[in-house]
Design a protein around this nucleic acid. Structure first.
Ligand code: MN
Ligand code: MN
Ligand code: ZN
Ligand code: ZN
Lengths: 135, 135
DNA sequence: TAACTAAATTAGAATAATTCTAAAAGAGGA
DNA sequence: TCCTCTTTTAGAATTATTCTAATTTAGTTA
């Protein structure tokens, strides 16, 4: 992903292409770690923590990023969401795994029928445990 | 739901049947509001806020209750989860609607295939907007 | 290219949801 | 009834996140 690609992603969504936004978006696109604001700040020390938070809020607003609240800590985790997908959370390791091998269309249709709303998005977390853990 | 039913629900899950736990569990079972700890405390003033939090944590631990982190406020919402279901969130009103007209078995199977884990549960939130809102 | 301006960044202070502490009370079993 | 571990509680502490207001900058215009 070139710098110009990142600028375009921001500008087509109405966001100014600042160094901080380009850097944070690139960070999220190239890390599978579902980091917290503080984890990003540790890696990108040249960007203030306030800007990390401000930028993440903007990226969430335009739909490029989502927030995942795991139950295991009380911090928000951020996730590049250019490709919608769901999450599998390993309750042994607290690892968050990305997956997209499921068609959400039937679920959207069920939700539309249940609520009458126009469905705009989803957050799905599936919890599991290692099959070989002693129970 | 009788007092004895509630006591049994707690005791079969290894929790002592205290007045506070019975009262809070009953509260969650009889309210559709997906309240925060503070909202519960406003209605149950005779129970300390610390106990509201302690009790909710226990009820979550044993699976009777889940936490829903909406993105709209930074408070945790609690939900009786004796009957697993999914949530539809109206982004116009921030209302949380319960629904269960969807079979999660195929999604569980997809998650098992993607991760190799034994799937133990799910949290699903579907977001939507009123169809008649001016866009 | 230079000037302009609304938007973005920043350090540090403030907020508030949640957790912690340690002393008192209670549940359930013996 | 007694015992003991668990639970409850008020209030203090923590800390993730938000706010403030001064400075800088991106993108536009001339
Ligand atoms: Mn939250
Ligand atoms: Mn907090
Ligand atoms: Zn992800
Ligand atoms: Zn619910």
């Amino acid at each position: 992903m070139t710098d110009q690609n990142l600028r375009d992603m921001l500008q087509t969504r109405g966001l100014k292409a600042t160094f901080q936004r380009i850097t944070i978006l690139d960070y999220l696109m190239t890390h599978e770690t579902h980091p917290t604001a503080d984890m990003i700040h540790l890696d990108l020390k040249e960007i203030s923590l306030a800007t990390i938070y401000n930028t993440l809020e903007k990226l969430v607003d335009v739909g490029l990023v989502i927030v995942i609240d795991t139950q295991k800590d009380d911090k928000r985790h951020y996730d590049y969401y250019g490709e919608p997908h769901y999450h599998i959370i390993n309750n042994n390791t607290n690892e968050i795994i990305d997956a997209d091998n499921f068609d959400v269309a039937p679920l959207f249709e069920a939700a539309r029928q249940a609520s009458g709303l126009n469905i705009t998005g989803f957050h799905i977390e599936i919890y599991g445990v290692d099959p070989d853990e002693a129970k």
